[in-house]
Simulated assay, not measured.
Amino acid sequence: MKILKFALPALSFIMAVAACSKDDSNTSTAITVQNISGKYVVKGLVYTVAGISFNLYDSFPACEKDNYVLLNTDKTLNYVDDGEVCVPSSADNGTWDVRNDSIIFTSQFESAKVQSYDGKTLVLTGNPESEPSVVATTTLEKQ
Rank of each mutant, 00 (worst) to 15 (best):
K2A: 11
I3F: 11
I3T: 08
L4W: 04
K5T: 13
A7H: 05
P9V: 04
P9Q: 09
S12P: 00
A18T: 05
A18Y: 00
A19F: 01
A19V: 09
S21R: 13
S21F: 09
S21P: 03
D24C: 09
S25W: 12
N26T: 15
N26F: 14
S28F: 04
A30N: 10
T32A: 07
T32N: 09
I36V: 15
G38E: 04
V42K: 01
K43S: 06
K43C: 00
K43M: 05
G44H: 03
L45K: 02
V46P: 08
Y47I: 01
T48S: 12
T48H: 11
T48M: 03
V49G: 02
G51A: 03
I52D: 05
N55I: 13
A62D: 09
A62K: 08
E64L: 10
N67F: 11
T76N: 05
T76P: 01
L77H: 00
N78W: 00
Y79M: 04
V80S: 07
G83F: 14
G83D: 07
S90P: 01
N93A: 14
N93D: 15
T95K: 14
W96G: 01
D97G: 08
R99Q: 10
R99I: 03
S102K: 08
S102I: 01
I104D: 07
T106Y: 03
E110D: 04
S111L: 00
A112L: 04
A112C: 05
Y117M: 12
Y117L: 05
L122A: 12
V123F: 10
L124Q: 04
T125S: 15
G126S: 10
P128D: 09
P128S: 06
E129M: 12
E129V: 15
S130I: 09
S130Y: 10
E131Y: 15
V134D: 07
V135I: 13
A136W: 08
T137H: 02
T139V: 14
L140F: 15
E141R: 08
E141M: 13
K142S: 06
Q143F: 14
Q143P: 06
